[in-house]
Each structure stands twice: as C-alpha cells, then as structure tokens.
Simulated scan of single mutants.
Amino acid sequence: MATLTGFQRDLLFIVAGKTNASGQEIKDELEKEYSGEINHGRLYPNLDTLVNRELVEKGTIDRRTNSYDLTGEGYEALENHREWEDQYFS
C-alpha cells in the first residue's frame, strides 16, 4: 500500500464497497468524493495498475464494459492499511 498513490488507495476503497463495479460506477463515486470530473485518462490507467498488482480483478460485463472486484490480496492490503491508520487516529 505504501507504493500506491492516494488516488489508487481511494480506488481500492470504492471497489471494496461494490460488487462487479463498472468503471463508470467507480468514476461516479470518485466524482462525488473529489467534487469534480475524473477523466478516463486518469481512471483507467490507475485501475490497470491495481489489476497488475493483483489488488483488483478485472472482469467483463459486456463487450464494452469491464467489471472490477477486490481480490483477497487487495482486501488484506486495505485491512492492513486501516490497522496502520488506526494507531494514529484513535
């Protein structure tokens, strides 16, 4: 987790809260939190980074739409990160 950007960590939390989330669903959630538009050139390369690090699994909803789910490793990374945060924020 230490090598991820804050944006990538935010992506992990959003993916963790959804099942088979499409990129558009993830983008919509991010835009609520960031109060602005998240462009595709920022979103999808960062999702691909998480997929390549095996923290997120990429699937297919239809020919044009991918789905994203947290892997066991991704869940464990988030859990460890939250435990680390808790020692400073309690």
Results as ranks from 00 to 15, higher is better:
8 Q>K: 11
66 N>T: 00
73 E>H: 05
72 G>Y: 00
81 H>L: 13
14 I>D: 00
85 E>C: 14
53 R>I: 01
78 L>K: 05
14 I>E: 04
89 F>D: 15
27 K>L: 06
24 Q>D: 11
55 L>I: 07
24 Q>K: 13
24 Q>H: 09
76 E>H: 04
53 R>E: 09
75 Y>D: 05
28 D>N: 14
66 N>D: 00
72 G>R: 02
21 A>R: 07
30 L>K: 11
63 R>K: 11
40 H>T: 14
42 R>Y: 11
13 F>Q: 14
39 N>P: 12
79 E>W: 04
51 V>R: 06
6 G>L: 15
55 L>G: 05
66 N>Y: 00
88 Y>H: 15
50 L>E: 06
40 H>P: 03
54 E>D: 10
90 S>N: 15
74 G>V: 02
62 D>E: 06
6 G>A: 15
27 K>H: 07
40 H>D: 12
70 L>Q: 00
30 L>T: 09
15 V>N: 02
9 R>H: 14
74 G>T: 01
82 R>E: 11
15 V>C: 03
49 T>F: 05
32 K>A: 10
44 Y>K: 04
30 L>I: 08
9 R>T: 13
31 E>L: 06
11 L>Q: 05
69 D>F: 00
19 T>R: 09
87 Q>T: 15
31 E>V: 07
32 K>S: 06
54 E>A: 08
22 S>N: 05
79 E>L: 05
30 L>H: 09
14 I>N: 02
12 L>F: 08
83 E>H: 10
14 I>C: 02
46 N>S: 15
64 R>L: 01
18 K>V: 01
28 D>C: 03
32 K>V: 10
33 E>S: 13
63 R>C: 03
51 V>Y: 06
21 A>L: 08
25 E>I: 00
28 D>V: 06
87 Q>G: 12
25 E>D: 11
64 R>N: 04
53 R>D: 05
22 S>G: 07
78 L>M: 11
65 T>I: 04
89 F>G: 14
47 L>V: 04
22 S>W: 01
24 Q>L: 09
45 P>L: 12
65 T>Y: 00
42 R>A: 12
25 E>H: 02
43 L>A: 07
32 K>C: 06
4 L>W: 13
59 G>E: 03
8 Q>I: 04
78 L>P: 02
26 I>A: 00
22 S>T: 11
21 A>Q: 08
64 R>A: 03
80 N>Q: 09
64 R>T: 02
68 Y>S: 01
16 A>S: 13
82 R>D: 10
41 G>N: 15
42 R>S: 14
18 K>E: 09
16 A>R: 05
54 E>K: 13
37 E>Y: 09
48 D>E: 10
41 G>C: 12
36 G>V: 07
36 G>R: 12
61 I>G: 00
57 E>H: 02
74 G>I: 01
75 Y>M: 06
3 T>L: 13
35 S>D: 14
58 K>A: 02
65 T>C: 00
76 E>F: 02
27 K>I: 03
52 N>F: 08
86 D>R: 15
16 A>K: 09
56 V>F: 00
64 R>K: 04
44 Y>T: 06
3 T>I: 08
24 Q>G: 04
64 R>F: 01
54 E>S: 10
52 N>P: 03
7 F>I: 07
32 K>G: 07
48 D>W: 07
38 I>S: 04
81 H>V: 03
55 L>P: 03
88 Y>N: 15
36 G>C: 08
88 Y>W: 15
1 M>D: 14
